[in-house]
Design a protein around this nucleic acid. Structure first.
Lengths: 155, 155
DNA sequence: AACAATTGTTGCAATATGCAACAATTGCGT
DNA sequence: ACGCAATTGTTGCATATTGCAACAATTGTT
């Protein structure tokens, strides 16, 4: 197996184990996977723009807008106007949203903690170092098959 | 940062870069992300059962059934009966399906090759070794938040 | 032979999707 | 200051996808 295929396999494995192909509306805390990601991202940044969120999650801004609307109607998220710019919107977590975020963090962290536990002690730091290198490498890459519209129909 | 968070970050990064939250119907070769995964999995196994496919991709069998139906109607996939069992279905690729698979492999491999290229030469084998360890560790884990129905509504 | 378990397909209502069009606002060039 | 382009976010819209539940068909078990 080629070395890049090892990375690809990890990717496939994560997709499977994390149920990323699902669009379930109740994965954790009564919200979908995509909404979990939204909540986490909003929480980490303490306020985001809709565009920023769409970009980070690699979603269309219309999709993002509606997704946020869903979170607002659940009382998890707040859409606030910014004083110095009446065009953009500042998206923040409500108290309920923060609670949800904590819960999501717990569930997710638990999962990844178990993964680390399953790695032999003496190999753990090696894995961490490698993952940091990998992270940097991935960050340098463009988005894959996203906005480039590779719609070539097969002959 | 805790060591498990490094792995989690990689996961988030992949979700973002690979556009896994998208349910775009035309990511590559005119099929969606989920369908790309289906095609790849069917191709790798040279014939799968619907249930197997649903399990591997962590999707409901009804969803899987319809997704396969979509691939059949596009002429990419074949649903065949098995001689010794008239209940199960054997799903295989058509010639067009194989062509699509090759294309998908190319696009995906290209992406992961670039990631490896972005890793310093002397560190590459380290990363590969670590990824193999990580892969084994992830395989040992259960599915995350999938069928367990953690539908606890937040207070 | 009777009954349980498995496999895959639909009915169904709800939701999500992205593109395009749009209004509101801001920035830029002159 | 004025006009025009660019940005930001929201909707209309048609389509696609989701999972649960119910179902028929088949297979396994006792």
């Amino acid at each position: 197996m080629k070395n890049y295929q090892v990375v690809r396999d990890i990717s496939r494995l994560l997709v499977r184990k994390l149920g990323l192909l699902r669009k379930n509306d109740a994965v954790c805390c009564g919200v979908s996977v995509a909404q979990c990601y939204s909540l986490t991202e909003i929480g980490r940044r303490e306020g985001v723009t809709l565009n920023e969120l769409a970009e980070v999650l690699n979603l269309d801004k219309s999709t993002m807008s509606r997704s946020v609307e869903g979170l607002v109607s659940r009382g998890l998220v707040l859409r606030q106007e910014i004083a110095d710019n009446r065009r953009t919107v500042n998206i923040t977590l409500t108290e309920q949203g923060k609670t949800a975020c904590v819960k999501i963090e717990q569930v997710t962290d638990e999962y990844f903690k178990n993964i680390m536990k399953a790695i032999p002690d003496e190999k753990r730091s090696l894995v961490v170092e490698a993952m940091q290198l990998l992270g940097k490498a991935i960050e340098k890459q463009k988005l894959c098959c996203s906005n480039e519209k590779i719609n070539e129909v097969i002959l």
